[in-house]
Amino acid sequence: MSIHVHPNILEIMAKVKSLFNVEGTLGEVTFYKDQDGYKIRTKNGVSKERIMNDPAYARTRENLAEFANAATSGKMLRRSIVSLMNDAKDNRVSSRLMQVMSRVKNEDLISARGERNVATGILTTLGMAWLRGFNFNRKAILDSVLQASYVLNPATGEVVIDDLVPIQQLDIPEGATHVTLSSGFLNLDFNTGVKDLQGSNLVNLPIDATISTVNLTPVGVPVGVGQNFYFLKVAFFQQVNAVQYPLNNGAFNALQIIEVV
């Protein structure tokens, strides 16, 4: 069995804040945050060279390799949906998603220890289940924000919300006058990083008692041999003098993975 760990993985992990902004202990390695950002250190002063070469630390190297895969996979997903997520996320979405990706990786029952990966784990029923329902903004959970039923067509990515009454079926933040609903259909290959995101039309509605049927249809079906992800987004706006402004920079916007196949 070979464990593929970059020889400079400790420096890489210490420097890349956007990828490993977590705190805690993994084997002999501790992740922490100081005034310069997120860093790592080894317990009991164990050198990087020893961790990377000493047979006694084989399990630590295995853990590091799998940790890196989960973090990289989370980054792939986040970067694939930047256009959806940029105004619908919380400040811990990276670490929360990485934790879920680690659970997906654990569903890989084929690869050797230290080589388990998200690309294999996501092919399983449980692997897909871990990501289904993930909310990118923990302060705006979709099932609480949108209190209406919707139907997804997995073949086209179309989402239909019948008879939506905004004033009754939305958890409306103070100051919101309008809401925009949209969806996304993504194919992402965790092996190669190849991605294709197809966004839907935007349906903008005043927050009142008008009944509307919302049809959100992606412009096309994404191309690829990876996993299919379906997203539903609710964004709030405040209208002032006929101009709609994002409400509180998107703090109340919801974005969820509603299905994975």
Rank of each mutant, 00 (worst) to 15 (best):
A88W: 00
D36Q: 15
L97R: 03
I110P: 05
K43W: 06
L97W: 00
S144E: 14
M128V: 08
K105M: 13
S73L: 04
M76D: 02
V82M: 09
Y38G: 00
F136C: 00
R96P: 01
R92Y: 02
R132C: 09
A68T: 03
R78H: 02
V104N: 05
A155S: 13
D87G: 03
S95I: 10
K89H: 08
M101S: 03
S102R: 05
L84E: 02
N91A: 12
D87I: 05
K39W: 15
A71D: 02
Q147E: 06
Y38F: 14
S149Q: 10
T120M: 09
F134K: 07
A65L: 04
M76K: 05
V160G: 10
A68L: 09
P154D: 03
T42M: 12
K39Y: 13
L84D: 04
L77K: 03
A58P: 00
R96M: 03
G27H: 09
P154L: 07
V160A: 12
L126Y: 13
M128F: 06
S80Q: 08
M98F: 02
G37F: 07
T72V: 04
L126D: 15
A56N: 12
E66S: 13
V46F: 12
G37S: 12
G157P: 08
R103G: 01
Y38Q: 07
R78N: 00
K48L: 06
A129M: 12
L109M: 14
S144V: 12
A71P: 04
W130S: 09
G114V: 05
T156D: 08
T60D: 15
F136T: 06
G157D: 03
I122L: 05
E62Q: 13
I51W: 09
L131K: 00
N106Y: 13
N44P: 01
L26K: 10
Q99M: 09
L123G: 10
I40G: 03
K33R: 13
I141A: 04
E49A: 15
N53A: 14
F136I: 07
A148D: 06
G114N: 05
R50L: 15
L142A: 09
R103Q: 10
E107K: 01
G24R: 11
L77Y: 01
M101T: 00
R138G: 04
R113W: 03
G157M: 05
A112T: 13
A70Q: 08
I51H: 07
N153Y: 12
V29K: 00
V104T: 06
A56T: 10
Y57L: 10
R113Q: 14
G24N: 10
T72Q: 06
L84V: 04
I110T: 09
D87R: 10
Q147H: 04
G114Y: 00
R132M: 10
L152D: 03
L109S: 13
S47Q: 15
G114D: 02
R79Q: 04
F31R: 06
T60K: 01
